[in-house]
Simulated scan of single mutants.
Amino acid sequence: MSDAENAKPGKLDAPMRAALFGVIGAAVVLSLGSLVVVSPRFALGVAIGGALAPLNLWVFAQVGEAFLARRGNTAPWAVIGALKLVLLLGGVWLILRSGIASGLSLIVGYGALPIGITVGTLFGPKPPEDGPEADTTRRSFGDAPRKDVLKARPADEGDPSNEP
């Protein structure tokens, strides 16, 4: 049995786990770096932003997986996605309003999201491309076309559209 057949609802696949661990690792590195370079208060804001990043990615992965799997009614997942956005924006607003952290420190910490996704994608496991569940019609950008569409046919083949 393949991993896709053994996958439980809510269980992340290996590339998503790699991206999630990459985000967590980037958040830790950014937090420790800001502690050494800037100040403990700034590092606290970076840590808070860095904690929001993997949490946001995990919820996004769960909602996206539910939409793609089309398990049951997708309306509750749309509500969860909207609720995720409201909680994220509301939580950031509360943090900024209370003065616990500056906006810049939260942005630096939340920057762990694109950094970690990039690192996890580049150095993590690749999704399976072979096997019975692989889509054989899907091609990547670099694949050559099945026939040379730029090759012009000679005009002497008797094509009526090529005649003057």
Results as ranks from 00 to 15, higher is better:
Ala26Trp: 04
Asn6His: 12
Lys147Gly: 10
Asp159Gln: 09
Asp156His: 15
Phe67Ser: 04
Ser31Lys: 05
Leu89Trp: 10
Gly10Ala: 08
Val86Asn: 02
Val149Pro: 03
Leu32Glu: 03
Ala152Asp: 12
Val37Glu: 04
Leu68Thr: 07
Val23His: 03
Pro145Trp: 11
Pro125Tyr: 01
Leu30Gly: 03
Ser31Ala: 10
Tyr110Asp: 01
Gly10Cys: 09
Phe21His: 10
Gly142Cys: 00
Asp130Arg: 09
Ile95Thr: 07
Lys147Thr: 14
Ser98Glu: 10
Val119Cys: 03
Leu88Phe: 14
Leu150Glu: 13
Ala4Asn: 05
Ile100Pro: 02
Gly72Thr: 07
Ser102Leu: 04
Asp143Glu: 15
Glu129Asp: 11
Pro128Val: 08
Glu163His: 13
Lys11His: 15
Asp13Met: 09
Ala82Met: 10
Pro160Leu: 07
Val29Lys: 00
Ala144Trp: 09
Gly22Lys: 03
Ala26Asn: 02
Pro128Gly: 11
Ala4Arg: 11
Arg17Asp: 07
Pro40Cys: 04
Leu106Lys: 01
Gly81Leu: 01
Ser98Thr: 14
Ser39His: 05
Met16Phe: 10
Gly142Trp: 13
Ala53Phe: 06
Leu30Cys: 00
Leu44Thr: 08
Thr121Ser: 11
Ala66Gly: 07
Val79Asp: 00
Val86Lys: 03
Pro154His: 13
Pro154Asn: 11
Arg97Ser: 13
Ala82Thr: 11
Ser98Met: 14
Glu133Asn: 12
Trp77Ile: 05
Leu85Gly: 13
Asp130Val: 02
Pro76Asp: 08
Leu88Asn: 07
